[in-house]
Design a protein around this nucleic acid. Sequence first.
DNA 1: GTCTATGCAAACGATTTGCATCCAA
DNA 2: TTGGATGCAAATCGTTTGCATAGAC
Lengths: 137, 137
Amino acid sequence: MDTAEIKKRIVQGGMKFTHQRMVIYGALSLSEDHPTAERVHEKIKSANPSISLGTVYKTLDSFVNAGILQKFTDDTGIMRFDPVLETHSHLYCNDSKEFRDFKNPLLEKLLKSFFEENEIEGFEVEEVSLVIKGKTK
Amino acid sequence: MDTAEIKKRIVQGGMKFTHQRMVIYGALSLSEDHPTAERVHEKIKSANPSISLGTVYKTLDSFVNAGILQKFTDDTGIMRFDPVLETHSHLYCNDSKEFRDFKNPLLEKLLKSFFEENEIEGFEVEEVSLVIKGKTK
DNA sequence: GTCTATGCAAACGATTTGCATCCAA
DNA sequence: TTGGATGCAAATCGTTTGCATAGAC
């Protein structure tokens, strides 16, 4: 994702465009992993030593509220950020403790049809979140 | 679940049987919700004021290691405990922020077959965890 | 009697908050 | 110019740890 595209996303999210937001979103959009706030801070601080960890937290939170970033919490309770907005699942490696995106149209269709065809009594489904745990081989 | 059954579970898990473990497992096995450690402590403390929150944490952790309790982490990063050991999913109400168990053999079979029939390149699936988010109606 | 479980208090670590200053619009 | 964004430090809070004592086996 290039500079212009990132700026567009930030502005479309209804946010002021700042240097910090540019740098932080840039670090995220490059990463295939699902970094924590601290990891994002590490990635950017050599080139941008003045951006504080507090700002990274606040900025990531603003991105989530603006809908241009997704967040989830891993098994250890630490927040993870994901710039991929489309419906997708996550692979979690029990050995390396790392996440990877898993996009599979068939699986998504399967889940979608299941919940369309099977009403859950007393509950209205809005979204489903699937984590696939196992080992990289 | 009665006293004898709880004692059996604790002993079969290879753990010493203590009054604290009895009380803590008892509080969990009664609850359809998925309480936090603090919630468990609240539930038991009027009848057992000497059981400390630290002991609740250590005990719940021992149960998980012994395999007689499952734990997961909610979206806010707080640990939740679940005495239901069989494969099942969770319903999460965005309004009340509460979890309910969702057992559905068809859904479980669907997911199981999907991952049996669709090899994920470079990944060996061990378990899948599904959270269904929405609203109680 | 031995070895683990418990209670207590202090430590920890990820995240949030308050507030003065800065800067994009 | 002005309201929102940033940097810094202190506060928060769920959870863990260390250690002396108690209790299960």
